[in-house]
């Protein structure tokens, strides 16, 4: 019988259900929604490929091929920390549902000499 007060209280209050997707809810500032790539600065150093725990990147430096599979990505942010040129970023907005899963492919002219980023052994 201890529930009676709670239950009647609920009846006269507004429901707490969130009406997703009819009502959009602003994501939190630090939500890890999806990975966004800005390939203009990319130097094909493959740091992201090495750090990614999910194997979402596939980079063929000689062919200038950069593949990213957003549906393998677990949005952990390891690649963002690894990237020396800051071309990767985690956006707070969630990935939208899609009808077809597609790998993102870029063709990039590799720079003449590529140097892997050196430094402390941080993940």
């Amino acid at each position: 019988m201890q529930m009676l007060a709670t239950v009647l209280n609920n009846l006269f209050k507004r429901p707490v259900t969130r009406e997703y997707p009819y009502r959009y809810r602003e994501p939190f500032r630090s939500s890890k929604g999806r990975l966004v790539l800005d390939m203009r600065e990319c130097i094909m150093c493959t740091a992201c490929e090495k750090r990614c725990p999910a194997g979402a990147f596939e980079i063929k430096r000689k062919e200038g091929l950069f593949k990213f599979d957003p549906y393998s990505c677990v949005v952990c942010g390891a690649c963002v920390e690894a990237c020396p040129k800051k071309c990767l970023d985690v956006d707070s907005d969630w990935r939208k549902p899609v009808g077809e899963m597609r790998t993102e492919i870029w063709h990039i002219e590799p720079p003449a000499k590529v140097k892997s980023p050196a430094g402390a052994e941080t993940p």
Binding site: V7, L8, N10, P15, V16
Partner: peptide
């Protein structure tokens, strides 16, 4: 509907 409202849902 009423059950949902009692539980704080929209129903």
């Amino acid at each position: 509907k009423i059950t949902a409202r009692l539980q704080g849902r929209k129903g």
